[in-house]
Amino acid sequence: MFFNKYNDKKDGVIRGYDIRSPKIKVLAVLIMLVCLFMVCVCLFPAIWVFLASFKDIREFTKNVTIIPDSFDWSRMGQTWKAFKFTKYYYNSFISIIGSTICAVFFNGLLAYGLGVLRPKGYKIALGLVMWSLMIPGVTSIVALFRNINLVGLNKSFIPLWFSFGANAFWVVLFKQFFEEIPKELLEAAKLDGCGVFQIFTRIMLPLSKPIIMVVAIFAVTAAWSDFLLPYLVLNGTDKVTVMVKLFSFKDTPTDAVSVLRASFFAIIPPTIIFAIFQRKITDGAAAGAVKG
């Protein structure tokens, strides 16, 4: 029965004993309905883009409907082929793999230094990192882009990979996790003759699988969605990624349904990843920021 489950309710304002009151029952049902409505609002755009991708341009601009006249997969296939999405996916995957490795490795290493080793003067570095948490990169993208060209890293994935190695938010996540690892373990490793770097690879990383998972998933979705720097660095080369392509539609006379199909292709991989790791992702998202 619908209301019985409320007796085992562990958190929240409405307690198990409240549910006996009819007023509370109505309230519980109302809340349920509101939540279901929110689900519709949250999921509908993604469902709509899937449906709209089956329309052709005439149907799209003239018909006042949500459901397409027919589900013609060949249209999707044509757009996929015309845009060479296989290539863009491939490029995006290269970009993601490098970015994720950099995100875990460099931010983890810095957090290890700032949270565990704490050498003399580490507070300066920590302060700088915390401040960069406040001023994200968009403001200095022009200067950054100029620098990348000056050092000759343009037309390459390298600056995109490394840019993920400097993320203050992820440093903080790692740092918080590392600080909770028992110091005794580190001391024991030190007695066994491990150097600082070996402690990191042999003790810290294996113990940090949960946080690595969280940062890696964040990095994967962020790298997939990232477009301004990739656009500036890669546009016009053969390394164009899915998002770079999507951003360039701003200026090309590509028809609306092709743009929609491309948008649909762009949300497939994150949706799949989300479907697989949803539990980890939602838990990580909540846990990560609670202390930050």
Binding site: N149, N154, D251
Partner: peptide, 20 residues
């Protein structure tokens, strides 16, 4: 290397050495 000229995309491309 299809490129549709637009005022706010051209210069970054030249600057990055990606101009067709």
């Amino acid at each position: 290397a299809y490129y549709k000229y637009s005022t706010d995309t051209f210069m970054p491309m030249v600057e990055a050495g990606n101009c067709p």
